[in-house]
Design a protein around this nucleic acid. Structure first.
Length: 292
DNA sequence: CTTTTCTCCTGTATGC
DNA sequence: TGCATACAGGAGAAAA
């Protein structure tokens, strides 16, 4: 379940193994992987040959390679890993994966780049870049808490105006990007706030502290995700070690809260699971009522 | 306009 | 053993 730290691990893998190389050929094996690229997968593949990978960048859970065409134009090749997407750097003679959707070979005859995705929630698309070098296709995605463009004061103000659950806001990539179900639960646990409390009912300092905790927990995860990185495997499972050792809430149902010992509970929220401490993170006292 | 729900997908785990 | 069902969940479209 790649969220910001896992995607950043992948970006660093691309930085180390792909940036600076020139694509020789791109092949797409399913239209679905390029479904966000409206001209289609065939066009997609055609546009990629002879492009030099100039940079590997990330915003939230989106990753993109800045490609330079032979004419010197720049464009973005966006990748979103979805639930189960992986970018793998592998020897050209390595056997194909069962869910291989795209392959990129390079003119140096070195290892190739593959996009493998079991559940096909992920995808790739080409997009023009804006003045800031961000693909136009993802301009709606808000800056993430780790980038310089992140304006926490503005995000807190926007949250304060929302009449929806605070966890829903944390997961809204148009408000703040990079946070998924795991790190939302972890940030809320650290801040001692139940995810179903309304944004508008929380103080700005509390909203700010939730964002601070989100940033901190993702930075910690990133520190650990880097350690399990394998040179030939641009891993989306950077959090695997992190899962076992450091998660305080997510997936911990029934285990004692590390602050107070109360068993962690699991609740259904937005058709997903939310984990929290019943004592440290009491549910909002008044049931949320639809105002209209 | 804002907010919520639905849908896409398949491997793994669980229940009868 | 086999079959059915639940679950994992990001993001965008559709609905309310």
């Amino acid at each position: 379940m790649p969220e910001l730290p896992e995607v950043e691990v992948v970006r660093r893998g691309l930085q180390d193994h792909v940036v600076g190389r020139t694509i020789e050929r791109a092949e797409f094996y399913s239209a679905r992987v390029a479904r966000r690229h409206h001209p289609g997968a065939h066009h997609h593949a055609e546009q990629l040959a002879d492009n030099r990978v100039a940079e590997a960048r990330r915003r939230g859970k989106y990753l993109w390679m800045v490609l330079q065409t032979p004419d010197g134009f720049h464009q973005g090749l966006i990748t979103h890993l979805g639930m189960s997407g992986q970018l793998l750097v592998e020897a050209v003679d390595a056997p194909d994966e069962k869910h291989l959707h795209a392959r990129f070979t390079f003119d140096d005859d070195g290892p190739e780049l593959r996009f493998v995705d079991q559940r096909t929630f992920g995808g790739m698309a080409l997009s023009d870049l804006d003045e800031a070098g961000v693909p136009e296709a993802i301009e709606h995605i808000a800056p993430d808490p780790l980038e310089a463009a992140f304006d926490q004061k503005a995000v807190v103000a926007a949250m304060k105006k929302r009449h929806s659950a605070v966890k829903r806001a944390l997961l809204d990539q148009d408000l703040v990007s990079g946070i998924g179900n795991i790190y939302a639960d972890e940030a809320l646990w650290r801040a001692c706030v139940h995810g179903e409390r309304l944004c508008s009912a929380l103080s700005k300092p509390v909203l700010g502290s939730i964002l601070d905790h989100a940033r901190e927990v993702m930075l910690e995860a990133l520190g650990q995700g880097g350690t399990s990185f394998d040179a030939l495997y641009v891993n989306v499972n950077g959090a695997s070690g992190y899962f076992d050792r450091s998660l305080n809430a997510y997936g911990q149902e029934g285990r004692p809260c590390r602050r107070c010992g109360t068993p962690i509970r699991r609740e259904s929220f937005m058709n997903r699971s939310s984990y929290s401490c019943p004592r440290c993170q009491p549910r909002p006292r008044v049931a949320r009522l639809a105002t209209r």
